[in-house]
Nucleic acid binder design. Structure first.
Lengths: 183, 183
DNA sequence: TTCGTTATCGAACACCTTGTACAACATCAT
DNA sequence: ATGATGTTGTACAAGGTGTTCGATAACGAA
């Protein structure tokens, strides 16, 4: 990709993220984004059809990173899918968040968090559906699978939401224990 | 309240609800609302400061009704707060929804459902906080209260969401059982 | 370096939406 | 009947959206 394109794209992403952590999505204008990113109006629309598309692309960028199949570097950092026990998958995800890769934390705890938590949940559902045992099996077999998958992913998202909006004072291990206690 | 005011107000609420069940909140314009409600532009702004305020008022109207302390009429219809067992409170709420009071169902299952489910959850949290025993006590006492309350209300909301978006094929009793099974 | 390609710029533009203002009219309660 | 109050239609300024276009600068390959 052209160096210029990359630069513009990242300037826009950066400006957008900063704005998102400060004010509500609806109130952010394209004018503000391009001013902060220091790019021309036409450039913005050359990259993103609308503000909504920009948001989608940003979400992709953020969550593909976390849920990606490739290793994301770092010390003995096994990928999610290669982990063995349920506990380690959950802990792994929480530690990912705690390390604040991609500055995702600001976006998960700001007033726009529902925007991102929705994507988070969708990715989680896919993960659970493909490998249900990673998050612990249901005890009651009369429950429909769809309901159970939805419940587990929703509970995880709510747990993360609670953690981040309360200042992340607890350790990842503690949060993991809370989650497992209610599931 | 003046008959004219009431008429205008309800025409606006009606038009707004219809539009909400068809398209996303962000894409609805004041122009569309007043055209469908058949009221003048100035009238709209005489009633509601902005579209956001209209939404808030609509939510109040919808949820105050469900969570209101007064009886809502009908056959041996005890109020939520007067019910005895956890099971009956939950069942009561679900039946309320199933009867589709205030045409709330369309709004809970349309693409704007997050808008309303947020209010729903807030009301639930208040209810659980004031009378925790109504929704069953937590087994594990090492869990923080805040986390537990959030978990229970979120699970209830997710249950309702799952129920409505899947066509409400199950009975209120079945859904109540699902909910109690995961809590 | 040179050269064709491609991204960016900035300014202008038409269009739409918002929220306000006001005078004329309709409806209300008494 | 009458004064008060709600509604109407129109007009308006302010601000946001998405597009266009020629000029300019940066790019990658030869």
């Amino acid at each position: 990709m052209d160096r210029r394109q990359k630069k513009s794209r990242e300037a826009i992403f950066g400006a957008f993220s900063e704005l998102l952590s400060k004010k509500h999505y609806d109130k952010i204008t394209v004018g503000e984004i391009i001013e902060r990113a220091d790019v021309g109006r036409a450039t913005f629309y050359a990259h993103f059809e609308t503000k909504d598309f920009l948001l989608k692309e940003l979400c992709k960028e953020l969550f593909c990173h976390i849920f990606d199949k490739t290793k994301s570097g770092g010390e003995n950092h096994k990928h999610i899918f290669e982990c063995d026990a349920p506990k380690s998958v959950i802990l792994h995800l929480l530690q990912h968040l705690q390390r604040n890769d991609n500055n995702i934390l600001e976006l998960l705890s700001c007033e726009n968090n529902e925007l991102f938590l929705r994507y988070f949940k969708e990715n989680l559902k896919m993960l659970i559906q493909s490998q249900p045992e990673l998050f612990g099996n249901k005890r009651d077999n009369s429950l429909p699978d769809g309901y159970w998958v939805n419940h587990v992913s929703a509970t995880f998202v709510e747990t993360v939401k609670w953690w981040t909006t309360n200042g992340m004072k607890e350790s990842a291990e503690t949060i993991s224990a809370y989650f497992l206690a209610v599931i």
